[in-house]
Design a protein around this nucleic acid. Structure first.
Length: 830
RNA sequence: GGGCGGUUGCUGAAAUUGGUAGACAGGGCGGACUUAGGAUCCGUUGGCGCAAGCCAUGAGAGUUCGAGUCUCUCACCGCCCACCA
């Protein structure tokens, strides 16, 4: 179809560029395969873990080998991390860059159910594809000799071992608690796996059930996890997410007496003690343990009925206020006034004390509740300066202010009153200042098949008994009946030979725990295992950990900011406190790469927008795709994937190829001089700084600009060509190696990846002349070029000689002249 | 509702951290080469204007000799959390 010239093409062509852009002219397929094989054969990426002199642990998040395959988002993350690793290696570090697979869990199991194939079979298939067809082709310097599999009994034996260490030290406990239950997956979920009241995996509306489950005591570490964020070198936004997730707040917890029940106290928590005189009701969570005790006879039926209906999970969008009166009255701790005690489903049993003082005048939820229930409102805080409250306030005034109607505290500011009340409560022993955390304990029980069995035995006499360590692993039975039973119990519960065992203490018949542990437990310690992946005698080698840990650089997606990263920190810290690890924190530095979206949406199978890197790699080569991904935009920002500009990178590497091959023979052996020398050092500085800060996009841009300048010249020096290749090597490992070999001296026999990163000469850069803009009243009128060390007076007089300035000054008078050193000259006129 | 981040040409984006806004690419337009290559090369490309020039970094104000960058107000967008007392 011949188009009229001048016709505008749509700016967003719907079809992929795959078919429209030509592949590189150089024979990437041959040499990429050649180097891949040679490097594997020569074990280029294997480090001597014991004898490495400058160990550098470059970690990336091992994948969950799904059926959909590795997508561009994964590759983006891995390539950016690998560039960092390659760069550190060129700086002389012994970089360890291992890889493994995280394949237990509901996601794999659900897919297996859908296909009717055993998850073990499917997992093996997916892992094979991930490793051989995908991960080995993205150009990363992976050391495959330390591959880790969480589903391998040699691995999960130690996952179970870790659980036992926590159990023996009181950090794992079985307790009855309201839990999130997914009716479709037929298992409980951690709070973190419930999104907007729905199951993270299958989207089903989650129910609330009261069950006995295994928890790891994450809350015991809330403050420690918070404190260490102070000094960790992590992306600031990830630290912020963790802080919010831990959710520390400080407030007053106090006991309220009940009228006519001298033995009963209700604990209440508030962050606003200054509003205490505005309390007009007390509200308990629907499942609060004191409800049976305090409910009066007349209210029993209503309360029981209410507890039935309120036994649901709130879903963010529902804000209807419901509640029921218990019949009991609390006594106000300061005034002795009788205050009705209600049950309300807006109160969460899992936060604070599970009970709140209701101050409708100064809390939006309390206000909504009294409006629904017809309870009174009492204003006790007003804006400073305003004498009287509105007669019948319709909205809560939630800001701090000045107290009124508050006995001896009236007239104080909120802050003063809070301080005074803290003191009062502490002195009379009725309450105290406490910090509360939003963080909850980590629920790890899963009533599923595809995970490590929790290594516990239940004995009639001895209760929950840990499986002796020498009997680990508790093998996941390889059976045909692995599908969910539909009863809510784990499929393991139906396997008689698994369930029936004997008590390790008394030898009597006993039952095994039939739940498996959460997938996040597997991935919370994998980085400790790479060094001893096949060691059957210990989880890790302390000598190697001393040498290599904590992780020097961890790069991965920000979506793991609160789950994986929090659990890994918790596990590391608790194992440290138990004497198993020498360091408190697992990851010295963490950087979150940006998320890659497709057409504005998160890449996921359910959205059907998975972009697979394989076809791009096949068509354009690994180097082109790596450079293209990094050139798209700032690495830590991510972006929307489109293959729009990939032709630009193809042309770039093609031109690198032809430039180097053309000049390989005749390039001068002399060092570049003058401006050429300055340019090359400026480039080295620029690229070095960009790599250090993960600004890969501008590093590529700088190299493109340099190539443009080299192409305009007829003779080049070897140093210029070599520098170009070295600076490009971390991003495009294959083409730079191939060209390096064409360029090298006879007898020089090492890989470009074993050369040392070029350093820049600050003096060479500093010697440049300055181009100073000349402004008049803020507007640039011209420029002058002066030597670096020209005195200020000389610069000023030169500035006045600029023709544009002269013509303007013909009509105006100079009142002031400002020279900003090395920046500009500014002239201000009357 | 809360927290964090963002908004720059047709598109992805740069901007030495307060100093010539749009580097480097993609796309467009004009041309050359030859001819038919999924090319390549040259020129041009923020807007308005023949020009000198003027106007432009979501909108509006402020600080400053000078603001994309700092301050305030507002409007959108994204992510995370969300009845957390």
């Amino acid at each position: 179809m011949s188009e009229q010239k001048g016709q505008v093409e749509p700016t967003h062509p719907a079809e992929s560029s795959l078919a429209r852009v030509r592949p590189p002219r150089y024979d990437f397929a041959t040499f990429e395969a050649k180097w891949r094989e040679r490097w594997e054969r020569e074990k280029l990426y294997q480090v001597d873990l014991y004898h490495a002199r400058r160990p550098y642990y470059n970690l990336m998040m091992f994948p969950y080998p799904s059926a959909e395959g590795l997508h561009v988002g994964n590759m983006y993350s891995y390539v950016g991390s690998d560039i960092h690793g390659r760069w550190m290696a060129m700086q002389g570090y012994d970089v360890f860059e291992p890889m493994g697979f995280d394949a237990f869990g509901i996601h794999s199991e659900n897919f297996a159910i859908q296909r009717g194939i055993h998850p073990r079979v499917l997992t093996a298939r997916n892992v094979e594809r991930f490793r051989e067809q995908q991960l080995k082709r993205i150009g990363n310097r992976f050391d495959w000799s330390h591959e880790v599999h969480t589903t391998d009994p040699r691995y999960y034996r130690w996952t179970q071992w870790i659980f036992l260490q926590l159990f023996k030290n009181g950090l794992a406990e079985r307790k009855t608690a309201p839990v999130n239950w997914c009716p479709k997956d037929k298992t409980v979920l951690a709070d973190e796996q419930v999104i907007d009241g729905h199951c993270e995996r299958c989207g089903t509306l989650v129910e609330r059930r009261w069950l006995e489950q295994w928890f790891l005591k994450l809350t015991r570490y809330a403050q420690k996890l918070l404190d260490n964020l102070e000094w960790l070198d992590w992306s600031e936004r990830v630290k912020m997410l963790q802080r919010n997730w831990i959710g520390r707040s400080e407030g007053l917890e106090f006991a309220i007496e009940i009228d006519g029940m001298p033995d009963v106290r209700v604990q209440v928590y508030t962050t606003r003690p200054d509003t205490i005189f505005g309390m007009t009701f007390v509200a308990l969570a629907p499942l609060h343990p004191l409800i049976p005790q305090i409910t009066t006879k007349t209210q029993l039926a209503d309360v029981a009925a209410y507890q039935q209906t309120a036994n649901r999970l709130h879903t963010g969008t529902e804000h209807t206020m419901t509640g029921v009166f218990t019949g009991a009255y609390a006594l106000h701790p300061l005034t002795g006034e009788r205050i009705p005690i209600w049950i309300a489903d807006f109160v969460l049993e899992s936060y604070g004390a599970g009970a709140v003082m209701g101050v409708p005048a100064h809390d939006e939820r309390d206000m909504a509740f009294v409006k629904a229930m017809g309870l009174p409102v009492r204003t006790v805080i007003v804006q400073p300066g305003s004498a009287h409250p509105a007669e019948e306030p319709q909205e809560a005034f939630v800001q701090p202010g000045v107290l009124i109607n508050s006995a001896g505290y009236s007239g104080m500011t909120s802050a003063q009153a809070a301080g005074a009340l803290f003191t009062w409560f502490e002195e009379c022993g009725k309450g105290h200042r406490v910090a509360k955390y939003r963080l909850r304990d980590w629920l790890i029980s899963r009533q599923r098949y595809w995970g490590p069995p929790i290594p516990i035995i239940y004995c009639q006499e001895h209760g929950a008994v840990p499986v002796p360590e020498e009997q680990l692993p508790v093998l996941l039975p390889d059976v045909e009946n692995w599908m969910p039973t539909g009863t809510g119990a784990s499929p393991l519960a139906a396997i008689e030979s698994f369930v029936h065992t004997t008590c390790p203490i008394c030898g009597h018949a006993a039952r095994r725990e039939t739940d498996v542990s959460d997938n996040f437990l597997d991935s919370a310690w994998y980085f400790l295992r790479y060094f001893s992946h096949d060691d059957e005698t210990q989880p890790w080698d302390p000598d190697l950990l001393r040498k290599w840990l904590p992780v020097d650089m961890y790069i991965g997606g920000a979506e793991h900011s609160v789950l994986h990263l929090m659990y890994a920190r918790f596990l590391t810290r608790s194992l440290h406190d138990l004497g198993h690890l020498e360091f408190e924190e697992p990851f010295k530095r963490f950087r979150a790469n940006g998320m890659i979206t497709k057409d504005g949406a998160k890449i996921s199978k359910s959205k059907g927008n998975i972009v697979n890197p394989d076809s791009y790699i096949t068509r354009f080569g690994t180097d082109v795709f790596r450079v293209y991904l990094m050139f798209m935009g700032p690495y830590q920002a991510g972006g929307d994937f489109s293959d729009h500009g990939i032709g630009g990178v193809v042309r770039f590497l093609d031109r690198v190829w032809s430039l180097v091959t053309q000049h390989a023979q005749n390039a001068s052996a002399q060092a570049p001089q003058g401006e050429e020398r300055r340019v090359i050092h400026r480039l080295i500085k620029r690229v070095t700084e960009d790599l250090a800060t993960l600004k890969y996009n501008t590093a590529v841009a700088a190299l493109m600009g340099y190539l443009n300048s080299l192409e305009t010249r007829s003779t080049l020096t070897r140093e210029e060509l070599r520098t170009l290749l070295m600076l490009l090597a971390p991003m495009a490992p294959y083409i730079t190696e191939e060209l390096w070999q064409k360029l090298k001296h006879p007898g020089q026999n090492h890989s470009i990846h074993a050369t040392s990163w070029p350093s820049f000469d600050a003096e060479a850069i500093g010697a440049e002349t300055l181009i100073l803009p000349i402004q008049i009243n803020g507007r640039v009128r011209g420029r002058i070029e002066v030597a670096h060390d020209t005195p200020e007076a000389e610069i000023k007089s030169q500035a006045l000689q600029v023709p544009q300035v002269q013509s303007l000054l013909a009509t105006q008078k100079v009142t002031r002249m400002i020279y900003v050193p090395e920046r500009l000259v500014n002239i201000v006129t009357a």
